[in-house]
Design a protein around this nucleic acid. Structure first.
Lengths: 107, 107
DNA sequence: CTTTCGTATCGATGGTTATCGAAGTCGACT
DNA sequence: AGTCGACTTCGATAACCATCGATACGAAAG
């Protein structure tokens, strides 16, 4: 777990910065941010793709693309059951980012 | 302060998601993430541009561009003193993001 | 006031990305 | 088997972005 490295503790090395930046970049799209928030706030913790598609005025392939991006960076996981695919949050991934950004107010 | 809206509390509306996504997008670049971490971890809280430029193998205009992006989304502020420009962190901005991503482990 | 040094802006360019329609896959039901 | 519905992958296109060299600006020094 690397001891929850805070951003203010010491400068990030290039390798770690590159990995983290990928996750932030995934969150750096309004649609993806809303998708994460939809999944995170859903009772039961998992959401069918159809539920997400219905929340946007975007084509279904576009939503699928965004889901793929979020899955690739480790923010979501997916599972197929019957005809439907369900996505759920990876809380540890968000937690790591939260800890990283948790800069002490008192310097 | 809008009661520190957690991502898991309720789905983000489009407007708020767009604003937040801009900040995450700013952090979604390895160079910018390292710049933020350099500024955040620097004693005294402020860093001269020359200190940042020296930490990368990038041209000075490129660093200046990244600093501008971080400043535009409210993560950094700058002040000119004599010939040098100093950048410092806006802790509240990082804090808001941290609170947003602070998803409770127990669903 | 011209030079010099630190930083910002400009214009161009190559690489990346969001989006779509079309086609492919995978289960389920008949 | 055949078909239908849910979802993903593919190929194309337009918009965006990181980076650079050249240039401009602002402050201090000579």
């Amino acid at each position: 777990m690397r001891c929850s490295p805070q951003l203010a503790r010491e400068p990030l090395d290039a390798e770690r910065a590159a990995a983290l930046a990928q996750v932030f970049k995934a969150l750096g799209d309004p649609v993806r941010l809303r998708i994460v928030s939809i999944v995170a706030s859903h009772d039961g913790g998992e959401v069918c793709v159809c539920d997400i598609t219905g929340a946007f005025e975007l084509s279904q392939p576009t939503i699928s693309h965004h889901l793929k991006v979020l899955k690739e960076v480790g923010l979501l996981t997916s599972e197929r059951r019957a005809s439907w695919v369900y996505y759920r949050l990876v809380p540890e991934a968000l937690g790591e980012l939260s800890a990283l950004l948790d800069v002490p107010v008192v310097a």
